[in-house]
Nucleic acid binder design. Structure first.
Lengths: 244, 244
DNA sequence: CGGCCAATTGACGGCTCTCAAATTCCGTGG
DNA sequence: CCACGGAATTTGAGAGCCGTCAATTGGCCG
């Protein structure tokens, strides 16, 4: 386990120093007793929590006490079966609501591990449910968040079940690119927060195959990749490969 | 499309002829304004609907008007990407709640197609939401149903991403067996409602590979399969293959 | 009886995995 | 600041599993 003793990244420190401007938060209805209620009335436990690279926000088997909103940084969500086989099901970034899979049984079924120093908001599940009972729009928002995870998971199923490795990687890059764009970063040049091993696991491949696909895509002048630094040279070609 | 003009199967006719004993239904809190309220006060639209083999309960693109509980029979849930690639994400049987993926956007993202003549309960989504607002236990039940779909989807991800074809098929058979047992049928001998093509699609394989795995498992005396009729001879060996 | 579809089996090729080695990066300690 | 060690990444060679193509069988329905 990598538990480096470095401080938080610049992005993480920035957010931790921010005032709690929950007004701009996408899931504010879930945390606030009523839309527009005084923010200072929030329970003290609605707190931010810093997570260092390699640390877990929660692990499979933990009781469901909080859901978490990822405020800054990035994570990997990993499930493990009894024989130890692992599958990374998602790489959430800022804005994502984490821990929804625990709602079925009251126990987390996955690990959420920080890919970099990150910041999460802990949302006590009991408070959140009470809030949904009082506020129909909050309930609807929660429904949508859970359903979103279903759809995302189903799309990944199609990728693993029906696509060649080249197409999987191309689609993964397009997804990352759109994610970066949605957060106001360059969609053409960014840093991969996850290792090749993480990518391979997520896409149902081996590390070496990921490297070889990277090499092929670079030879074809679709991307330029050096370690974690990725430049997308021909996003249209990548989209055509994915075909959807 | 196979739209045979046969009548409903015996199981389907049995349920259709049943009185509306919603008291024994797992999702009754979702349909009833309040637990214990008079059943006769239910809206007329809370109706059963018969679906013939090959027909769709809903299709991708349909607006979300109802969720559906599968009362009798079986379905396949299928997603399609813009280029026409398809992936069967689940084979729900009686008791399952269908259409949850539509909650994110208000539009269905998958097709639900009957594998045999079946019966569903249509649950108007607006009524259901209103009910969740009045009844916290109904809201909780709905949350759990949605979260259940997430967990099921994630487990399938691990299967497609990390398992060999033999292990996928073995795990699929164990799942079917447990499903049959949970419904009071023999877990050792039953009929596959889906085609080899459906199985192959669901498990990310080709038809021919499914046939070959069946042949291998039969040679190893783990199963006996003839067309759609499956006998499980050594469930422990199948479980050991799956390893979880 | 004939046609169509599901299912099965064989041959072959290729994509991906496995094994191995070299290189670079990064953090740690001297 | 430099040296060292481990981890991450890359590339090659070879094998094997699985997909592709093809042919056959058997059952169902018109």
């Amino acid at each position: 386990m990598d538990t480096s003793s470095f401080g938080l990244s610049r992005a993480a420190r920035h957010v931790a120093a921010m005032p709690r401007d929950c007004e701009s938060c996408a899931v504010a209805p879930l945390c606030h007793p009523l839309a527009g209620a005084a923010p200072q009335s929030l329970p003290a436990s609605y707190g931010r929590r810093r997570v260092r690279r390699g640390e877990a926000v929660y692990r499979a088997g933990d009781p469901l006490s909080n859901l978490y909103q990822l405020r800054a940084g990035s994570m990997k969500i990993r499930i493990t079966n009894p024989s130890g086989a692992e599958q990374i099901t998602a790489f959430p970034v800022a804005g994502a609501l984490l821990g929804l899979d625990a709602i079925e049984t009251g126990t987390h079924t996955s690990d959420a591990i920080a890919l970099e120093d990150s910041v999460v908001c802990a949302l006590p599940y009991a408070d959140l449910m009470a809030n949904c009972n009082r506020d129909a729009s909050a309930a609807r928002l929660l429904h949508q968040c859970i359903a979103h995870d279903i759809n995302q998971c189903q799309r990944l199923l199609l990728t693993l079940g029906r696509m060649t490795t080249d197409v999987r990687v191309a689609g993964f890059m397009v997804d990352l690119s759109e994610q970066m764009a949605a957060h106001g970063y360059s969609p053409r040049e960014f840093v991969l927060k996850m290792t090749r091993e993480d990518i391979a696991n997520h896409l149902g491949m081996q590390i070496e195959t990921v490297c070889r696909v990277f090499s092929r895509l670079q030879s074809a002048a679709l991307i330029h990749v050096s370690k974690r630094h990725l430049k997308i040279l021909d996003v249209d070609a990548l989209r055509r490969m994915r075909c959807g």
